[in-house]
Simulated assay, not measured.
Amino acid sequence: MPATIQPFTNQPIFAALTTKQRAILAAAIDVFAEKGYANSSTHEIAKRAGVAEGNIFSKFGSKAGLLQAIIDPVVETIFPTTMDRLAAAQLQKPAATLTGFITALVMARVKFFANNAAVVKVFLGEVIYSNDIRQRLLANLPERYWRAVHSELEHLRTTNQIVAWSDQAILRLIWSLVGGTLVSTLYFNQPLADGDVQRLITALIKALTPSKEA
């Protein structure tokens, strides 16, 4: 099983799967990420997993069922849990600074990406075209995450460390720049170096720092 896929299939949500079923899921992630969902076949997935094609249908029903078995855990459990841990560990500290806030958000996404690169590529291939998946993802982000983010942003606005924009506008900018950087590493085969991450953090801090004239 590829090292970049194992952290995903080792999630507790997959504990009930057999070794063979995990191999199928890992192979599906690998093939979908490599060729795209539309250009993949259950025959190739079964071959890469080292199982009979019938094993796919007996557990997952179809190629679409395999895709759903990858997407649903990300939307329902894995990403929300990651964001909840971020809120608990990094976003509930007093005397927040803009640098600390941006660094925590960026590094959480970079770490998630590094541990789930192939899964993220499959997920992005679907979320771009599916408003339903996007809405489910937002709806499943834990309340503690939203409260912590709002509290941090309110503190930063009150202390004039960040531009006086709405939470939504600030998060849209952050997610756009972070997402664009991560997508480029996936689809243009550009490795994400430490320097790239630091430049991203620096660019966000610069974009969100109030101008001296304000």
Rank of each mutant, 00 (worst) to 15 (best):
residue 1 M to K: 06
residue 47 K to Q: 15
residue 162 I to E: 01
residue 79 F to L: 15
residue 188 F to E: 12
residue 163 V to H: 01
residue 55 N to M: 13
residue 180 G to K: 03
residue 161 Q to M: 10
residue 209 T to Q: 10
residue 30 D to H: 14
residue 186 L to H: 02
residue 114 A to C: 11
residue 122 V to I: 10
residue 205 I to S: 01
residue 20 K to T: 15
residue 18 T to C: 03
residue 44 E to C: 00
residue 158 T to R: 15
residue 2 P to Q: 14
residue 114 A to M: 12
residue 63 K to G: 10
residue 147 R to G: 00
residue 148 A to R: 03
residue 27 A to Q: 04
residue 83 M to S: 09
residue 140 N to S: 09
residue 154 E to A: 14
residue 49 A to E: 06
residue 184 S to H: 10
residue 8 F to V: 11
residue 210 P to C: 08
residue 34 E to C: 05
residue 60 F to D: 03
residue 129 Y to M: 05
residue 98 L to Q: 10
residue 141 L to C: 01
residue 15 A to G: 01
residue 149 V to R: 07
residue 162 I to V: 12
residue 68 Q to I: 08
residue 5 I to C: 04
residue 65 G to A: 06
residue 90 Q to T: 04
residue 58 S to E: 14
residue 205 I to A: 01
residue 151 S to P: 00
residue 152 E to Q: 14
residue 74 V to A: 08
residue 184 S to P: 00
residue 6 Q to N: 07
residue 133 I to R: 01
residue 101 F to P: 08
residue 132 D to M: 07
residue 63 K to A: 10
residue 23 A to I: 02
residue 135 Q to L: 13
residue 208 L to M: 06
residue 151 S to K: 14
residue 146 W to C: 00
residue 158 T to V: 02
residue 46 A to R: 04
residue 12 P to D: 12
residue 182 L to R: 01
residue 179 G to D: 07
residue 138 L to P: 00
residue 108 A to K: 10
residue 185 T to L: 02
residue 55 N to V: 00
residue 210 P to G: 08
residue 86 L to W: 06
residue 29 I to A: 10
residue 153 L to E: 02
residue 93 K to L: 15
residue 140 N to R: 14
residue 127 V to N: 04
residue 125 G to A: 07
residue 170 I to R: 03
residue 46 A to G: 11
residue 196 D to R: 05
residue 187 Y to D: 04
residue 129 Y to T: 09
residue 94 P to V: 10
residue 76 E to I: 03
residue 142 P to K: 08
residue 151 S to R: 13
residue 73 P to M: 07
residue 48 R to V: 12
residue 192 L to Q: 03
residue 135 Q to M: 11
residue 22 R to A: 03
residue 53 E to Y: 01
residue 109 R to W: 10
residue 168 Q to G: 02
residue 55 N to Y: 10
residue 104 A to Q: 07
residue 137 L to V: 08
residue 21 Q to L: 09
residue 115 N to C: 09
residue 110 V to L: 13
residue 28 A to Y: 02
residue 119 V to E: 05
residue 84 D to K: 15
residue 9 T to N: 00
residue 95 A to T: 07
residue 159 T to Q: 14
residue 8 F to I: 12
residue 164 A to H: 13
residue 183 V to W: 01
residue 202 T to C: 00
residue 54 G to E: 08
residue 54 G to F: 06
residue 153 L to Y: 01
residue 49 A to R: 00
residue 171 L to D: 04
residue 174 I to H: 01
residue 90 Q to F: 10
residue 134 R to T: 03
residue 67 L to V: 06
residue 136 R to H: 06
residue 155 H to Y: 15
residue 141 L to Q: 08
residue 154 E to H: 12
residue 20 K to L: 12
residue 151 S to L: 11
residue 194 D to K: 13
residue 130 S to D: 13
residue 38 A to K: 12
residue 103 T to L: 05
residue 75 V to H: 06
residue 83 M to W: 05
residue 168 Q to S: 12
residue 174 I to F: 10
residue 187 Y to I: 13
residue 19 T to V: 13
residue 198 Q to S: 15
residue 194 D to S: 14
residue 80 P to I: 10
residue 132 D to H: 11
residue 41 S to A: 08
residue 162 I to P: 02
